[in-house]
Design a binder for these strands. Structure first.
Length: 418
DNA sequence: TCTGGGGTCCTAGGACCC
DNA sequence: TCTGGGGTCCTAGGACCC
C-alpha cells in the first residue's frame, strides 16, 4: 500500500503565540527575538510584509521598527513549548500516527484514511480543529513522500487561494507546483547546493526532479539523491513516531556582557555544564566525552580574535553535574588566554550510554555511583518543583561550597528555535 | 552599543588490522 | 623473490534542518 504523509506547519509560530495572548496585536506587525535579543527569529504576517528578513540583527532594522510601530518581543520558550504540545495533542486525537518534527511542525500518516473522504477535506478539518482547540493557524501539505509534503505545505503557505491546504497526491499537481517552485525551497537544498545546482542549470524543483539520480549521487551525495527520488514520489524517508535518543547535547550562549576574566568564564562554563547535565539526566543517559569552547566576537574585526575548544574523556560515563562541571573547569583552564574579550562559550556532551543499562567497570565504586544518582535526582526534583533552585558553587553567586541557590536566568528548558 | 542556539547526517582521509 | 587491498573505526569538516 502506498503511503500518504501530511505535513502540518504552524504559521509564524512564535509570533502567533505572542498574538494569542494579546488581542491588541491583531493586525499589528510582531517580531520575536533570539536570546539576548540579538536577531529576529520569528515574524508575523504583517512584519514579513514589511520586508523584514529572518535572522536579521535587530540593530539593523531599528528604524523600520520605529517607523511602523512594530511590536518586538523577547522569546518566551516555555510559552511556545506549551502551545506546541497543545497543537500536537489535537493532531494525535485526529490521526493514529504523528511524528513531532520540530516545535511547530508535525508529519501525520494518512495512509489508512477512509477513501470515502477527500484528502483535501481532511486537511481542512485538521486545520479547523487546530484553530478551534488552540487558536493557532496551520497549513497542511499532503503528498506520497515527506519531501513532497513539505513542498505542498510551502505551496499552501505561498498561495492564499489554496486555503492553506494543498493535496499533492496527483502527479500532475506535483509537477505543476514543482515547475513554479525555486529549487532552494526544496527540503534539503540549502544555499551551497543551490549555488551548485543553479550553475548546472537546475533552478526549479522540477528541474531537480528530472535530473538523473545517479548523476546527482556522483556529483553531490546520497542525501540529495534521496531528495530526487522523493520529489518523484518514491518514499525514502519514513514516519518516525518515536524520537531517536540524542547523540549530543549542547549548552552555549552569547554572553550579555563581554567576559574578560577567567573567573567570569568559569561561572558561565560551570552553568552550561550543569544545564547540559540536566538535559542528559532527563534523557536518562550518561556521557563520556565533554567539550568546552570559548570564543571572541567573530563580527568584531577590529579586536584580536581567539577561539578554541578542548575535549576531555571521563574514565566512566556520568551525568553527575559535579563530575561534568569539574572536567569542564579543567578543560577551560587549558584553553583560556588572558587579554581577549570573550562573547561566547559553551559545553558539549557526547558519547552517550544508557543510564539504566551501563556496565560497571572493574574499579567503579557502586556506592558512590548510587549516591550520585540519588543526589542528582533530588536536585532535579527541587529545581523542577519551583520551590527553589539548587546549583553548584562553581556556578557563582556564592562563596560557600556544596549546593546553593542561584538565579534562574539559565534554567529554562529551551527547545530549538525555528 | 547591538549579529541565536540548538541538532542531524554524510564524506573524506588517516590509522590500523589481517 | 613477492611490498596488496579490503574492512572498520575514528575524526574533522561541511552541509543541511528548525
Amino acid at each position: 500500500m502506498s503511503q500518504i504523509f501530511a505535513l502540518v506547519d504552524c504559521n509564524n509560530f512564535y509570533a502567533s503565540c505572542e498574538k494569542l495572548f494579546a488581542p491588541r496585536l491583531k493586525n499589528v506587525p510582531v517580531l520575536v527575538l533570539s536570546n539576548n535579543d540579538g536577531c529576529v527569529v520569528a515574524r508575523s504576517r504583517e512584519a514579513k510584509a514589511l520586508g523584514i528578513k529572518m535572522g536579521v540583527p535587530v540593530f539593523k532594522i531599528k528604524q523600520v521598527i520605529t517607523k511602523h510601530k512594530i511590536q518586538v518581543f523577547s522569546s518566551n520558550y516555555p510559552l511556545y513549548a506549551d502551545m506546541s504540545s497543545r497543537v500536537i495533542h489535537t493532531l494525535e486525537a485526529l490521526v493514529p500516527r504523528v511524528e513531532v518534527y520540530s516545535i511547530d511542525e508535525a508529519f501525520l500518516d494518512l495512509s489508512g484514511l477512509d477513501k470515502r473522504f477527500s484528502l483535501e477535506d481532511f486537511g481542512k478539518q485538521v486545520k479547523a480543529k487546530v484553530d478551534k482547540d488552540t487558536g493557532i493557524q496551520v497549513c497542511v501539505g499532503i503528498a506520497p513522500t515527506k519531501t513532497l509534503a513539505k513542498l505542498a505545505n510551502h505551496g499552501a503557505k505561498q498561495y492564499p487561494a489554496t486555503g492553506g491546504v494543498v493535496d499533492l497526491t496527483a502527479r500532475i499537481r506535483q509537477e505543476k507546483l514543482m515547475a513554479i517552485t525555486p529549487v532552494e525551497e526544496v527540503w534539503g537544498v540549502g544555499r551551497q547546493l543551490t549555488k551548485r545546482l543553479n550553475a548546472m542549470g537546475i533552478t526549479t524543483a522540477l528541474d531537480l526532479a528530472q535530473t538523473d539520480p545517479q548523476q546527482i549521487r556522483n556529483q553531490f551525495s546520497i542525501v540529495l539523491e534521496r531528495t530526487v527520488h522523493e520529489l518523484n514520489g518514491i518514499a525514502c524517508l519514513e514516519l518516525e513516531e518515536i524520537p531517536a535518543k540524542r547523540k549530543q547535547i549542547i549548552s552555549s550562549r552569547s554572553f550579555g556582557q563581554v567576559v574578560t576574566e577567567l573567573d567570569g568564564m568559569r561561572q558561565a562554563i560551570a552553568q552550561h555544564a550543569t544545564r547540559a547535565a540536566e538535559n542528559l539526566r532527563a534523557e536518562e543517559q550518561q556521557a563520556k566525552v565533554l567539550t568546552v569552547f570559548i570564543q571572541t566576537n567573530r563580527f568584531k574585526t577590529d579586536q584580536p580574535s581567539y577561539s578554541n575548544s578542548a575535549i576531555g574523556q571521563l574514565p566512566e560515563p556520568s551525568n553527575d553535574s559535579r563530575v561534568l562541571a569539574r572536567l569542564a573547569m579543567q578543560l577551560l583552564e587549558s584553553i583560556w588566554r588572558d587579554g581577549y574579550r570573550y562573547n561566547k562559550g559553551g559545553v558539549m556532551l557526547a558519547d552517550f550510554y544508557d543510564q539504566n543499562a551501563s556496565q560497571p567497570s572493574l574499579f567503579e565504586d557502586m556506592t558512590k555511583k548510587y549516591r550520585s544518582k540519588k543526589l542528582m535526582a533530588a536536585v532535579d526534583q527541587i529545581n523542577e518543583s519551583g520551590l527553589g533552585t539548587v546549583t553548584l558553587a562553581s556556578q557563582g553567586n556564592c562563596n560557600c561550597s556544596g549546593l546553593i541557590p542561584m538565579d534562574t536566568s539559565m534554567r529554562d528548558n529551551r527547545p530549538s528555535l525555528v
